[in-house]
């Protein structure tokens, strides 16, 4: 067992974990943050995307011990003061989700994109979402939602 300490969604947490514990497992099983999902075992689907140190990562492909001391943000921490993040708002407004399972990872990934570029092209959005699989939406409304969130962010 190792003790890890980190800030998750702005709150200091610490937990005892086996070194083999994945960050996704720490979040879901020890911290009860089940908004982060696990959809595959080969780091492809992106349902588990969270932010570590402000960058999007796959929490199923990172050890909890690697996040020791880090700032972690999950889907549960995205809305602030009861106010949805513009990307969350845009996903709802543009029907960017159906079953909702890929949605947390998809949103966390899109937030990272918009932090890097405020006016991504359709191609840039599609390429950025390479690490996020969705089986429901055909991506149409996800791309529309990210475009809308980018617009909202620029206004």
């Amino acid at each position: 067992m190792a003790t890890v300490s980190m800030r998750v969604n702005g709150k200091a947490v610490s937990a005892d974990v086996e070194p083999a514990t994945l960050l996704a497992e720490l979040l879901r099983e020890k911290l009860g943050l089940t908004g982060t999902h696990v959809g595959c075992d080969t780091s492809q689907c992106g349902a588990c995307v969270v932010h570590v140190g402000g960058k999007s990562v796959k929490s199923c492909t990172m050890l909890a011990v690697e996040a020791d001391g880090a700032e972690v943000k999950t889907i549960e921490g995205l809305a602030e003061n009861g106010q949805l993040h513009p990307v969350q708002e845009a996903f709802r407004e543009h029907h960017g989700l159906q079953c909702g399972f890929c949605t947390p990872g998809m949103i966390m990934s899109a937030v990272d994109l918009l932090a890097r570029t405020s006016d991504p092209s359709e191609r840039e959005i599609r390429d950025w979402l390479e690490g996020n699989l969705c089986r429901c939406t055909g991506y149409h409304n996800i791309v529309k939602a990210v475009q809308a969130a980018a617009r909202a962010g620029r206004e």
């Binding site: 089940t34 999902h37 889907i75 549960e76 709802r92």
Partner: peptide
């Protein structure tokens, strides 16, 4: 707009696992 979306976009969906 979908009534179910708020829980999904905030990570409050409740799936079996």
């Amino acid at each position: 707009k979908r009534k179910e979306d708020l829980r999904f976009i905030t990570g409050r969906g409740r799936y079996t696992d």
